[in-house]
């Protein structure tokens, strides 16, 4: 009946399975290194943040299929801008509010 609406949901079972497995791995690694104190705290924070960002990107690609949306890719642009703003909010606040540790 609605053959003119042959819009497909993007992705395939394979892509979901890959995304799922990679996510599991990227959850277990940080968990492992933190519980075993594999590195100094400083390095640990970097390592687990990198893992988190990687997992986020993997879910964007394999679960949310950000690359497969229709042209032009406004949503990629929006996410990229969003990440810049996230950086401003989180890093900016942390930087600006460090003065408190000096005062207290």
């Amino acid at each position: 009946m609605h053959d003119d609406h042959s819009e497909k949901h993007p992705g395939s079972t394979v892509s979901y399975v890959i995304g799922f497995l990679l996510s599991i791995v990227l959850t277990i690694i940080p968990l492992y290194v933190v519980l075993n104190h594999s590195f100094s705290n400083m390095i640990l924070v970097y390592v687990i943040m990198i893992m988190a960002v990687l997992q986020f990107l993997i879910q964007l690609v394999f679960f949310m299929h950000i690359r497969e949306s229709e042209e032009p890719h406004y949503n990629i642009l929006a996410i990229a801008l969003g990440i810049i703003f996230v950086f401003a909010i989180v890093a900016g606040s942390a930087w600006i509010m460090t003065f408190n540790s000096q005062v207290q």
Binding site: T27, P30, L31, V34, L35, H37, N41, L44, V45, I48, M49, M51, A52, Q55, F56, Q59
Partner: peptide, 14 residues
């Protein structure tokens, strides 16, 4: 949740 897991919980128990 990935970030809650990392920033709140993992860093919390570090």
């Amino acid at each position: 949740w990935i970030f809650i897991f990392t920033v709140v919980y993992l860093i919390g128990v570090m």
